[in-house]
Design a protein around this nucleic acid. Sequence first.
DNA 1: CGTCCACAGGAATGACGGGCGG
DNA 2: CCGCCCGTCATTCCTGTGGACG
Length: 415
Amino acid sequence: MKGVDRKSEILDEVFENFLRGFKIFKNREVLRHDYIPDYLPHREEHIRYLGEIVAPTLGGFPCSNVFIYGKTGTGKTAVIKYVLKKLVAKARSLNSPVRVCYINCRLAGTEYRILSSLCNAIFVDVPFTGLALGEVFDRFRGGLNSEKIILLTVLDEIDVLVKERGDSLLYELTRINEDLSGSRVSIIGISNDLSFKEYLDPRVLSTLSEEEIVFKPYNASELRDILLDRASMAFQEGVLTEGALSLCAALAAAEHGDARRALDLLRVAGELAEREGSKQIVEDHVRRAKRRIEHDRMIEALKSLPLHSKFVLLSVYLLSKTGSNKSVTGDIYNVYCEVCERLGMAPLTQRRVSGLINELDVIGLLNSRVVSLGRYGRTKKITLSVPKSLVRRVFAEDERFISIIDYTPKCLMKP
DNA sequence: CGTCCACAGGAATGACGGGCGG
DNA sequence: CCGCCCGTCATTCCTGTGGACG
């Protein structure tokens, strides 16, 4: 009973602290990545250029097709959505026949869903599933021919679509204008991957990339401006310290100039500060936010691993725990086989486990490098690149592994 | 200086499951 | 709804190799 009392006291304290405590946030929403601000620092050029490209649609003319490239967090999606928002508002007031359709190809997933989104944009109903692709396409074309429409199609993460499904849909879309009387379709493609052009049919490529825009990563001072702008909306006056702001910008600039990362850092730092009742966000909050984000990412990566990859990682953990410094492929495979046996699973072959080790290396959960021990062969030295305690915690949470988490591998018993 | 260990890692092939066209 | 095809994961078989040992 005493324990219960103490627990409720703890919670009382937490709640009281929160209610009485100082509020860091004014509006947390503006730090989410799906928020589109009214002002995009250091993207004025791109906005202007895109605006000039799409402007003819307001007069009922088609516009050039555009390709936009840039790494994640360089503002591509934000700029496009911003321009579309303004365009739609303007078109409505002018009563011009512009329709826009923004589609994220990775989220849509299949050609069918992309096409059905296009149909919805011109108010053509199609069932969720069941129709042949060609049928949907015909209805789409029919809808376009029934009245005059200038359809501006934005295909975000278009590289994913092409890599997974090929460029046939793009091919059809680029040629659809030939079969239309009054209506026109223009396409804006957005890609994270510059090399993705190689996957495209040259005819599609030349039609699509009438205009090209490259979004460069933000540098630290540009990130600083972005953060400053958002922070003024997100936080109460005077909450964010100069040092914390600069550190956020510097950390994100070091990591490919990703504005999304920078905003995440700022948001988590703010949450940490608020939670502990601090009146300001200081550099230490940012550092802890960085650790926190990385920590969460690692746990997520660990949890989502396929079963046998978990076994392999667990084997490396068990070996490292014994203190013996001999984490080479052969030993790991032996321990792995023991683990499998104790859990009643059939082990994979050494060849496959070797492949899994490489995959874990690529993800960054393991470190591996080939070494030659001369007479004693050529192998791979493998170490954990995440803290042991973290591995232990994640595995201890999974009931399948509790019986094995403190196991001492047999093959190490011998001297 | 050649040998030979203990694997690395490529290629071919098989098992399985899921989506697609008819 | 069914067969077909394709991608993924895994196995089998294989050739390649840096350097301590004798």
